[in-house]
Design a binder for these strands. Structure first.
Lengths: 283, 283
DNA sequence: AGTCAAGTTGTAATTTTACTACATTTGATG
DNA sequence: CATCAAATGTAGTAAAATTACAACTTGACT
């Protein structure tokens, strides 16, 4: 885990002087990694051994090891998850925080992914007669996006954001069909029911949802995507982005499986759009 | 620049013994960051000062500083932009590449954003009588997502993915209305026309699009979002994610502007969903 | 309030680590 | 093969981190 997050979360664990050290480091981590233990001790108004004890409390081997961890946290593009937006934040602050926590969430999501399952899902998708993408609420737009991607592959794709249409569509599904259900929580009742209907018609049901959820239990195959969600805002944010990126991965896997010739087909689809656009040169 | 890459590229610069050091480090960088200069010297069969000289040749201040740089290169989640998916990539490789390049794209997008414009857009959105989100193709799902977010704020929000509906909606817009148009290229003809119609009806038109595009020219205010897009795949991927994250930023700015009391309102909206879900405990 | 124990913090000595100055080696060139 | 510059190593020095221990807080219980 990112050591900066760990510091801000472990406040309770620290003693008074250790907290002083934590403050100084959090306030200026860049300076911290370039300081010696003596300098840092002086900056925090504590003794050197206190800094050392602080490092060990964070399960590092000592000060140099701690600096290594800190350096990694500070590495470009390794933002910390727990940058919650606060009431007092200005536009520059909340913009930065949201982007950074989104990136961090992607990193976490990537690590939680099971590549073998992705591979099998790509297999199933390439062999499907018809692919359906269903989601509700925030996940509806993800399904919508998936439609947009897979539509270009010249495969029968279906997307509905209406529960009844989703049900009817699943009623008519058959063994060769793949139904992809998207839900962050995996606890949306009507989606679970749809999974059951689809399974009842022998369709392959793939869930993009969280592990061990009711929806996951009803699926033939689950891509579990555990994303740290900032619940302060009462809106799904990072989970959606992770789902979309996963869709990108699946779509990419799909095109790779289909080979180069198929890729040319994609280019043609894209070229078709040209007429609807203003030429780049003409501006 | 990543110091590991730098080492492998600077081979010519090194002396014979220094190259030995480079080899050992490249072979096992994880070990290197946890070794002292003495251990590393022994592993490379060179003297300690040689290791030190090696570090300085790479423009670091000395061995400890070098280790810091190395640690940063090794931090996971340090994405390189130029990780294009290749024909021969397996699932683990393309998954990693897509996630990493998405993260990198977000970082680039964040840096290209103008915070002042974001602030003004948030201003306009909070004051709007009605907010419309329109996009076509891949950007339609982004607009769809925006609907989902702003809908929770108890503001009149409109979203259509049908050109005619979009036009009609804009025809009826007025001075107090804000129309948000989303397009990566900014060269989709019908969207440009819609911008003109909306402007003609005195609505405020906000573009989430690329700078200097035809669409940008027709907007009252443009949030330009320049994203490095992997064109190999002929599909918009990173641009969409950046747009969505921007929507998150706008939505967050919106709620912050409205204050704490408003946030409680959001919680109520979320709680309303409970009935449609399976309880967490019951599983 | 006084005492004691547990926990916290600092001082000073010790050990480890990195760096510097200088000596030796290597190998290329006339 | 003599010479010189570049490369490498040796040994000493300086700096940094860690340890052991002493002094000081804190708060519970008599």
């Amino acid at each position: 885990m990112n050591i900066l997050e760990k510091i801000s979360q472990s406040q309770a664990l620290f003693s008074k002087s250790e907290r002083k050290v934590a403050e100084v480091i959090l306030a200026n981590p860049q300076t911290a990694i370039h300081s010696s233990i003596a300098t840092l001790a002086k900056m925090s108004n504590v003794s050197e051994p206190t800094v050392n004890r602080f490092c060990r409390r964070l399960d590092t081997k000592g000060f140099p090891d701690f600096k290594l961890h800190l350096a990694q946290s500070l590495a470009n593009g390794t933002p910390y998850v727990n940058r919650h937006v606060e009431e007092s934040d200005g536009p520059d602050e909340y913009t930065k925080k949201i982007f950074e926590s989104t990136m961090a969430a992607l990193e976490v999501a990537r690590q939680s992914l099971d590549v073998n399952i992705i591979n099998r899902v790509v297999d199933l998708l390439t062999q499907a007669q018809k692919i359906s993408f269903f989601g509700l609420g925030a996940s509806a737009s993800v399904a919508h996006d998936a439609l947009n991607k897979f539509f270009r592959f010249n495969v029968p794709v279906v997307y509905f954001d209406d529960i009844l249409m989703q049900r009817m569509s699943c009623m008519n599904s058959s063994e060769e069909d793949v139904v992809v259900l998207i839900s962050h929580t995996g606890r949306t009742k009507s989606l679970v029911e749809i999974a059951q209907i689809a399974r009842g018609n022998d369709a392959t049901v793939i869930g993009i949802t969280s592990k061990d959820s009711p929806l996951a239990k009803e699926c033939s195959l689950v891509i579990s995507l555990d994303v740290p969600e900032d619940t302060d805002m009462y809106m799904p944010m990072a989970s959606r982005i992770a789902q979309l990126t996963l869709i990108d991965v699946l779509a990419t896997g799909f095109t790779l499986r289909r080979g180069t010739k198929f890729r040319e087909n994609l280019k043609r689809v894209k070229d078709t759009l040209r007429e609807s656009r203003y030429d780049k040169k003409q501006q």
